[in-house]
């Protein structure tokens, strides 16, 4: 058992949990949380893949990719949240 194996499997499990949530969650916020889990799973895999046995010198390229990915996902999350807020406002107003 090495850290890369443990965290690699963790990442895959987290991705699969997120996928299940994204497919089945009914609440809009919850679905977004599930998608966030998927993104973390993908991040885990890249960080694990960058890990090398002498642990002080991992491959920096995947690290840069994950940082890029984190910023991209927060952007997408913000847009989705804005849609959720606006939609809820419209729906509530129309129900009255």
């Amino acid at each position: 058992m090495t850290p890369d194996m443990i965290y690699g499997l963790t990442g895959i499990a987290v991705f699969a949990i997120g996928l299940a949530g994204a497919l089945c969650a009914q609440d809009r916020l919850r679905r977004l949380l599930a998608l966030k889990l998927c993104s973390m799973g993908a991040g885990f895999l890249l960080v694990v893949a960058a890990w090398r046995v002498p642990p002080d010198a991992p491959d920096p390229v995947p690290h840069a990719l994950v940082i890029t990915g984190i910023v991209v996902v927060v952007s997408a999350t913000a847009v989705a949240l804005a849609l959720i807020r606006r939609l809820q406002s419209l729906e509530t107003r129309d129900d009255d």
Partner: peptide, 10 residues
């Protein structure tokens, strides 16, 4: 966990 995997930036 990522710190543990020597990815402090991430």
């Amino acid at each position: 966990a990522w710190v543990r995997l020597s990815a402090p930036d991430v």
